[in-house]
Design a protein around this nucleic acid. Structure first.
Lengths: 249, 249
DNA sequence: TGCTACGTTGCGCTCTATGCAACGGTGATT
DNA sequence: AATCACCGTTGCATAGAGCGCAACGTAGCA
């Protein structure tokens, strides 16, 4: 469909067979040397390729980065599952696993609480960015520039008296989350429901998902929910480890 | 430099953050939705991305393939080194490690024999495609279409009386190599020098390099060189294993 | 010192890639 | 059940991006 893109991709595939120089790539892809040079420049700008001292082109670090991230994404749910089940069995609280999809934070797994009370949430549903612990945890890992973009187009509609409704207040909250490494939601998303969330990191070191527990305050007060923080962090660490994350890389 | 390529790469980077649909990608990259669609089609054609049932785009299998291949390439020399040293210490023969670079097969490591005789070869030097065991082993792993291309533009100049000088004869030889899993060079590259080579496979399953031993017939007859085949295959298997290769995937 | 091989650049033309506007299907909402 | 909104998709016409050519520069080799 798109000629130059197609050609660039063929170059990458070709480099998969081993390093090569301009002429070799030009011949094996049937593209003019000049064009190959310019395509490789673009590829190199984005670290999809690089050139060594002897003018040989190689596949670049971005390929590894993307592969690591993609693996993380594909695997989290499967890897997290047993840990979430164990956690849910022991503490019996509503447990959510959420991940970034496009501009949204989406619930990708959910375990119900053992008591009668059910939360309104469903796998596949979008989590409110401004009022949930999982969203805070995930957004906190974004670089500032991207965070800005997301926050700028965020819907700050109020869901309870505690909902954060301004960008300024939200960015402050994100600062806190970054500092302490976990997030809370004190009746911000649903009245009388408190929630805490922790990040899951993958082999790439980036946050790939978040786990949270939600508890109605008729069951546990906010202070008692905080007792769950330590075990929740432990679960998060275990899942991260299984996803290939190594602390302080 | 190249607008559409640059945009396509940004899409890949964006998808590294998680799956996304058209509109989300259009917004995050600042490119018109229509254009994003067309770029993604090209990317999907080459398996760099794919689309799931709910129209979410994800990073595709090609990324993993490339990452695996690139890792293989980067690591072979380092991984092979101790094995080659051990083999060379035990059998004392000239040992070569070669890999595909561009359209060439290049020596990427060499260990000298313990006797006085030295071969004319050097790390970085290109191996003759039509007359060396390492080249035969590496080319034998190429898909037929690529093999054809290489053979068509191959230099079949004769180096000894035994050198293969026709494409037909060479393709026949490759068939043999594929069948038996190793290659020989009976005084085809240098007069009075016999050689056998075996493949190294990486995590991707593809041949990423080849190891060979070369012995002047004043030192060992061709038949005695064949005694080295089994230990050489063992070394090849060990290196392959360390490169992440798992037999019969 | 001359030669060859290869990376690189400027230029002008062509064809590709792009944005627009409109269509159609699907799923959510009331 | 009906309507609406959302989102993927297509045809078209234009702009300008990408292309190949030819020439230059340079490094390595004989």
């Amino acid at each position: 469909m798109s000629q130059s893109v197609s050609r660039a991709l063929h170059l990458l595939v070709q480099l998969g067979n081993g390093p090569a120089n301009l002429d070799q790539l030009a011949e094996s892809t049937g593209v003019h040397k000049t064009t190959v040079l310019r395509l490789l420049r673009t590829l190199s700008d984005e670290r999809f390729t690089f050139r060594d001292n002897s003018n040989q082109y190689h596949l670049g670090s971005r390929i590894f980065e993307l592969a690591a991230q993609a693996t993380d994404q594909r695997e989290v749910r499967r890897i997290a599952s047993p840990h979430l089940v164990a956690f849910n069995r022991e503490y019996g609280r509503t447990t959510h696993l959420a991940a970034m999809e496009g501009g949204d934070v989406v619930y990708i797994d959910k375990l119900e609480s053992h008591d009668q009370i059910r939360m309104y949430s469903r796998i596949g549903l979008r989590a409110n960015l401004n009022s949930t612990a999982v969203a805070k945890v995930i957004l906190a890992d974004l670089p500032d520039s991207e965070l800005r973009t997301v926050v700028d187009s965020m819907d700050f509609s109020s869901r309870t008296a505690n909902t954060i409704t301004t960008p300024e207040r939200y960015l402050e909250e994100i600062r806190l989350v970054r500092e302490q490494g976990w997030a809370h939601d004190q009746e911000e998303n649903e009245p009388s429901v408190n929630c805490i969330g922790v990040p899951i990191r993958g082999a790439s070191g980036r946050v790939v998902a978040a786990v949270s527990v939600s508890v109605p305050d008729v069951v546990l007060s906010y202070e008692r929910v905080l007792d769950l923080l330590e075990p929740l962090q432990a679960v998060g660490a275990r899942i991260s480890r299984d996803c290939g994350y190594r602390a302080q890389p």
